[in-house]
Design a protein around this nucleic acid. Structure first.
Length: 270
DNA sequence: ACCTCCCTGGCC
DNA sequence: GGCCAGGGAGGT
C-alpha cells in the first residue's frame, strides 16, 4: 500500500512527463475520486488547460503547483497508483481518472479500493506534521513530539499530524530497526529509544525508495511504468508473522494496535 | 484519543 | 458467503 516511499518513487517517475506540461483534457470516471472537491465537474474545470509547474510531495500527498496558483493534489489511498501511458494503450481495470498531457501522453489514476482521490485546492486538505523524509525534527524536537502522547508508539508514528509519511508497513519496519515494541506508550520511551526511532526513519524510507517501493502480492502497488517495487524481500517485520526475526531468529508475532495489524519481534524489540 | 466507516478484490 | 486489508475523516 502506498506510503511515503511508494509515493516518492511515483512522483519521481511521473515528474518528467508532468512538469512544464499542459493538462489539456481531464476525465474523472468515478465520482468518488473527486469527493474532496464539490464533484468531478469542479476538478475538471479547475484542472483543464492548466500547466503543471513543480511536482512535489508532502507525506503521502502528491501536490503539484499549477499556473493558476492552485494545487493539484493526488492521494493514492491504499490501492491507488499512477500509470504513465500512451493514449492507445489499453486501460487497466479501475482507471478512475485520466489526465491527458499535451504531446500525447497521459497519467492514469488506477485505484480499485477508491480510498485515493484527486482534487484541486488552495492547500493540501489535511493537517500534516513534518515530512518524515525531508523535515524530520532534530532529536530534541522529536522527543518532544513523542512525549506528548500516551498512545502506543506505533499509533503515534501512523498519525500524519505528528509525522507525515509513515504507513503500516514502514512504521513496523522503523520500530523493528529501533528495537522498540510497537505497543509501548509513546511518552514512556526514554531519550535513547526515541533517538533510535528517529534515526531509523530515514534509512528505512530510503531503502524503500531505492528498491522502488514495496509491492505486495494482491492489489499490488506498481510503478508508473508497470514494474513491481522490490522492497518486499527487504522487510524484517511487516507481513512476517511466524518467520524468524532477521536479527535474533525469534519468530515474529502479529498483534492488533488501534484496529491495525502490527508485526514485531518479541525478543529483541522491547 | 478512541471507534467506525468508506470500498473492493482476493482468499478461506 | 464472509472476512480481511487499510488511510484518513468524521463522530463521540
Amino acid at each position: 500500500m502506498p506510503e511515503l516511499p511508494e509515493v516518492e518513487v511515483t512522483r519521481r517517475l511521473i515528474a518528467p512527463s508532468l512538469e512544464g506540461s499542459l493538462i489539456d483534457e481531464v476525465e474523472i470516471r468515478r465520482e468518488r475520486t473527486a469527493r474532496r472537491n464539490s464533484g468531478s465537474a469542479e476538478v475538471v474545470d479547475r484542472l483543464t488547460g492548466r500547466t503543471v509547474e513543480r511536482l512535489g510531495r508532502k507525506g503521502k500527498f502528491i501536490a503539484a503547483d499549477l499556473d493558476s496558483g492552485e494545487l493539484l493534489v493526488i492521494h493514492l489511498g491504499m490501492s491507488g497508483r499512477l500509470q504513465l501511458a500512451d493514449r492507445i494503450e489499453e486501460e487497466a481495470p479501475h482507471t478512475n481518472a485520466v489526465l491527458r498531457i499535451s504531446g500525447g501522453g497521459e497519467v492514469r489514476f488506477v485505484d480499485p479500493r477508491t480510498f485515493g482521490f484527486i482534487g484541486v485546492f488552495e492547500e493540501i486538505p489535511s493537517l500534516l506534521g513534518p515530512d518524515a523524509l525531508d523535515a524530520l525534527p532534530d532529536s530534541g524536537g522529536f522527543q518532544a513530539l513523542l512525549g506528548r502522547s500516551r498512545r502506543a508508539i506505533k499509533t503515534v508514528l501512523l498519525d500524519q499530524a505528528v509525522v507525515a509519511g509513515l504507513g503500516n508497513i514502514y512504521a513496523d519496519e522503523v520500530l523493528w530497526r529501533a528495537r522498540v515494541a510497537p505497543h509501548r506508550p509513546s511518552a514512556d520511551l526514554d531519550s535513547d529509544a526515541a533517538e533510535r526511532i528517529r534515526s531509523a526513519i530515514r534509512p528505512v524510507l530510503e531503502e524503500g525508495i531505492s528498491q522502488g517501493g514495496t509491492s505486495l502480492g494482491d492489489l499490488a502497488y506498481l510503478l508508473p511504468d508497470g514494474r513491481a517495487g522490490e522492497n518486499l524481500g527487504r522487510l524484517a517485520a511487516y507481513g512476517r508473522e511466524g518467520l524468524p526475526c532477521p536479527r535474533c531468529g525469534t519468530p515474529v508475532i502479529r498483534s492488533m494496535i488501534g484496529q491495525r495489524s502490527a508485526h514485531h519481534c518479541p525478543a529483541c524489540q522491547l
